[in-house]
Simulated assay, not measured.
Amino acid sequence: MYIAQAFKYHYGFWRYIIGIIIVAIGLTLGQIPWTFAVFMEEGFNMFAMPQTELMTSLESNFSLFLLLLSYGVGLAALFFAVKYLHQQPILALTTSRKRVDWKRVIFSFLITAILIVGGILIGYLLEPENFQWNFNLVPFLILLVIAVIFIPIQTSFEEYLFRGYLMQGIGTLVKNKWVPLLVTSLIFGGLHIANPEVATYGYFIMASYIGIGLLLGIITLMDEGMELALGFHAANNLFIALLLTSENTAFQTHSVFKDISTPELLGWEVFIELLVVYPVVLGIFAKKYGWTNWKNKLFGKVEKPETLKLSEEP
């Protein structure tokens, strides 16, 4: 139902290609302020600097604000494409329900916040030598304001693009659910390949990025809407930004703690994330919202509603 409702609007795949171009232009324009600020700081040397150094060229709160700003421009560009290119209401891109279920967003946000805070607390208790107290009141309060306002915009952009726009676009093209689930997850993970974490820990960490893409895609398909995915993604990025940073992360922040452990990837941590944490999240949501018919919702066909008129073709 969630993917199939895109058939009610202009769903020709060529429109999605143009839409992605519009979004790419929006993101590029949105990154101009950050690029200009770095250029003013580093000059032409910036073109020879590795990404890890570029990310620390500016004061971290200022850099974070400018980087997150680009996602706001990207989200506006995406909504523009959906409204004027597809003539589709944003509600139909968000959910198959008659209105956005904010209780779902809040529930998912709280569950994820508990998992993130709990995970960091357990890590601190088990290996306190890997954590450095990094709290500084004024910079942290500035970070708090920036993060609370702009990180949900960043995560919403990614959800609307991958679990919304591309999920529906690919789904209406191939007429099934598993292909858009897999493709959007691979693209979502692949776009993180330039992150400093990959250079530090190796390509095995890509399993984590692809895994979270699969989790959010499964949640969206099973729940027939993005509300749970929106809440999960926002809480995940927000609490990590506020509580823990390191020299090897994409976002350098004035967080409460700094990870000073030796940069090596422990495979068991990724396996716990993929094989324990994510299944627990799915189990909680499945129990809470009574999910059934998993096979059809994840692998079934996407059928065009018979009630559509010829005038509603692409």
Rank of each mutant, 00 (worst) to 15 (best):
G12I: 00
G12Y: 01
R15Q: 07
G19Y: 04
I25V: 15
I25M: 13
Q31H: 05
A37K: 10
G43F: 10
M46R: 15
A48N: 15
T52M: 10
E53H: 11
L54I: 12
T56G: 15
E59T: 05
E59S: 12
S60E: 11
F79M: 15
L85M: 11
L85P: 02
K98T: 11
F109N: 06
L110G: 00
I114Y: 01
I114T: 14
G123C: 00
Y124H: 12
Y124P: 00
E127H: 14
N130L: 05
W133Q: 13
N136F: 03
L143Q: 08
I151E: 05
T155E: 06
M167R: 02
I170Y: 04
G171P: 09
T172E: 02
K175M: 02
N176H: 05
L181K: 09
L182Y: 01
F204I: 03
Y209N: 10
G211M: 09
I212T: 15
L214G: 10
L216F: 14
E224H: 12
G231K: 08
A234C: 13
A234K: 07
F239G: 10
L243Q: 08
T245D: 12
N248T: 14
T249N: 15
A250C: 00
V256L: 15
T262H: 13
P263L: 08
I272L: 14
E273C: 03
L274H: 10
V281S: 02
L282N: 06
L282H: 07
G283D: 05
I284G: 10
A286S: 15
W291K: 08
W291R: 07
T292N: 13
N296W: 00
K301T: 11
